[in-house]
């Protein structure tokens, strides 16, 4: 029969990290084995305290060729950053 195991994307939350972060992918027959394999492949050095696995074919990604129009709107809005505003030194830390 020999059907290839499906691909899973692996996300790990590190010891001090806040968010789960994508670390790579792996093959596994089901979600349970994907977690076990992810433990062995991606956390051999204490990298994580929590693992998420998601079937790769369930991921929807933005289109690379549209990254210009997609992300441009945020580029021009520099007033969203604190450094946009000059606060006199006399005011102290803000």
């Amino acid at each position: 029969m020999s059907s290839e195991w499906p691909l899973w994307e692996v996300f790990i939350r590190g010891q001090h990290g806040l968010n789960h972060r994508h670390v790579g992918s792996l093959h596994a027959p089901d979600a349970e084995m994907a977690i076990k394999n992810a433990r062995d492949v991606y956390t051999r050095r204490n990298e994580g305290v929590s693992i998420w696995v998601v079937p790769s074919n369930q991921i929807t990604a933005s289109v690379p060729s549209e990254k210009g129009p997609m992300f441009e709107p945020s580029k021009s809005k520099i007033y969203r950053h604190p450094t946009f505003y000059d606060i006199p030194d006399d005011v102290g830390h803000m």
């Binding site: 029969m1 020999s2 059907s3 195991w5 027959p29 089901d30 084995m33």
Partner: peptide
Amino acid sequence: YRDGLVAHA
């Protein structure tokens, strides 16, 4: 073994 795990899944 590989096939067995697929069958189980």
